[in-house]
Design a protein around this nucleic acid. Structure first.
Lengths: 333, 333
DNA sequence: TTCCAGGCGGAAAACCGTTACACACTTTTG
DNA sequence: CAAAAGTGTGTAACGGTTTTCCGCCTGGAA
């Protein structure tokens, strides 16, 4: 490995001068600077970021802690974050927690030890200790979650409103007997989606009995099984609201294997608008989250906070929209 | 930030002793060790990994450079790698190149500057300079690619064989007029898949005219457009081999919007077996890559090399398998 | 003309937080 | 009683950045 000392020797100057040339941190005589640059290219020198980080106290690294990067929703978010970070000179450490609080804590410790400059955290658990103890010591942006703390900003999606849109839509199509496939109870998103959905139904004069709600896990297989259970518990439903697309897709599969057709027999609404919502049959009507904005917004919030650590914490809330495709039909009598 | 010196002072010992206690790098008197541990927890001390890395010359970090982590195939691979790395104490830096050689080079420079211990590289471009100049200076595992170089191992998939399986299967179903949607010409995988496919057809006495092959980009929209073109160029085909699932799914969409049904009118075979191959309608018959093995194998090769830097370079080749679902039918006359 | 302040360009040295090596001191051991 | 083992300390590294220092030159005032 060639070091700054090698360059200095080769150029016949001191290491300090080499540093100044590289970082434009002080004026150096053009002729000297040229000699230094020549030495740098001649030796193919590249400064050691670890040493630089140690001295500067910044690593140009941000930690990204999310439940599962192979979930297409998070995959998109991760991609956006990685892109946005890179153009600002930041590098991303990827961490999957599976929503497991213990893993989250372990990862957070590692990330803090690695001296990340900032954290983007899509936690799926709500364990107070994780937040309270570890978060405040590093600038962070929370996705889909809030916490009263200096230093922590939030990018939120109005899940309640999204659920409301779904309810309004299905009620508007004339459905009266409606089933719901919920996500994890301890997530922040699923209960809110459900809340908005119920409110919309209530406004339309529709009750949602407990037997028409089955909780699941946001996964494809979970959605399939939940749908099975739903068919058993509430055989008369004509429409289903699944709290995310993956479960909606699983539910459609379950229906198909029972010989039921979507939307002819049962209408289906999902949530998220993952890229694969259009590749299923029928293309899924769903509540779209503004994925591309979530990632870029998170990064820009984080960078702004790095620039101004003491600024009051901010919360940005993004509105989901209904994307009408072909998985819903008007109730026919 | 509390440092090792604070701990030493608090425990009334030297920093060296604290270091030894933390790293079990020498025996220390139980009583002393206990005092040190008490100080560590009292001060909530956590060692600074950056300083440690500088001193030890290792960062416990591996770089993961791939075209696009939101592509579900790479998303799965990334997930496996992240998991496998974490259990061995390694952290993953995520980099998306979009298969762009310039981006690859920029990323490689950054990663090298950050002193990653190893690299896992799924390049989609083939530019020799990237390999020749930068790769040999860091232990690396290439996915789906080979290079004669010390220090570089490969995890390969037998794409040729996969393509052969697809060709054999479609020929076996009686198809004679077959179309192909290819991936990028400069990828390593697509040409190999095509080669195997053509070989299988040839063995079955089937010719593949140039007009029956349309190249695309491995994306959903690309597959859709390619299928449009294919229908125009070769209207008599009864089966299509798409060089990945995403394109196959796009092709199915294109067919459906033309009123053609899969598999009744046209049979479709994909490649990869991404998780969403089962969520489309019809469920996609495809050539499955052993995704879960690719990631874990890559990590274990890398770790073994880190342990033994001078070992001869290894290549592991994994066999794809045909997964028969419902997107193909026997040709009926 | 002399003197001194101040700017300039470079070198030297301190520092960032840990680890590893050499050494000092005590206690066993043969 | 010398050699060896056992514990602990001091202090160079590691590879950069940043602060301080220093000699030189310029220019304005005395």
């Amino acid at each position: 490995m060639t070091t700054i000392a090698d360059v200095a020797r080769h150029a016949g100057v001191s290491v300090a001068t080499v540093s100044h040339v590289m970082n434009h941190t002080r004026h150096v005589e053009p002729e000297t600077a040229e000699r230094v640059r020549a030495a740098i290219t001649a030796l193919r020198y590249s400064p050691n970021s670890v040493a630089r980080s140690l001295r500067r106290g910044e690593t140009k690294t941000i930690g990204l802690l999310l439940p599962d990067n192979s979930n297409p929703f998070f995959a998109s978010v991760a991609r956006q974050i990685e892109d946005a970070g890179f153009v600002s000179g930041y590098t991303v450490i990827l961490c999957n927690s599976d929503g497991n609080a213990e893993k989250e804590e372990r990862y957070l410790s590692v990330l803090m030890a690695k001296q990340i400059d900032g954290l983007i955290f899509a936690g799926s658990s709500d364990h107070a200790r994780v937040f309270a103890r570890l978060l405040p010591s590093v600038p962070a942006v929370l996705l889909d979650r809030e916490i009263q703390s200096v230093n922590v900003d939030s990018v939120l999606v109005d899940h309640d409103h999204g659920g409301y849109l779904a309810g309004q839509y299905l009620a508007g199509l004339g459905h009266k007997e409606i089933g719901v496939i919920g996500g994890p109870r301890d997530s922040s998103s699923s209960p809110a989606r459900l809340r908005g959905f119920v409110r919309a139904l209530k406004e339309a004069g529709i009750e949602l009995p407990a037997s028409s709600i089955v909780d699941s896990d946001y996964h494809f297989a979970g959605g399939r099984m939940a749908m099975e259970q739903l068919m058993a518990q509430a055989p008369d439903i004509t429409a289903v609201f699944a709290c995310n697309d993956l479960m909606a897709m699983g539910a459609v599969t379950a229906l198909r294997s029972r010989g039921l057709r979507v939307p002819d027999d049962i209408s289906m609404v999902g949530f998220d608008d993952i890229p694969y919502a259009v590749t299923t049959w029928p293309p899924l009507t769903t509540i779209a989250q503004p994925v591309e904005k979530i990632g870029t917004l998170a990064v820009s919030l984080l960078l702004e906070r790095l620039g101004e650590p003491e600024a009051p914490s901010r919360r940005e809330v993004l509105a989901p929209v209904l994307v009408e495709r072909e998985s819903c039909a008007r109730l026919r009598e």
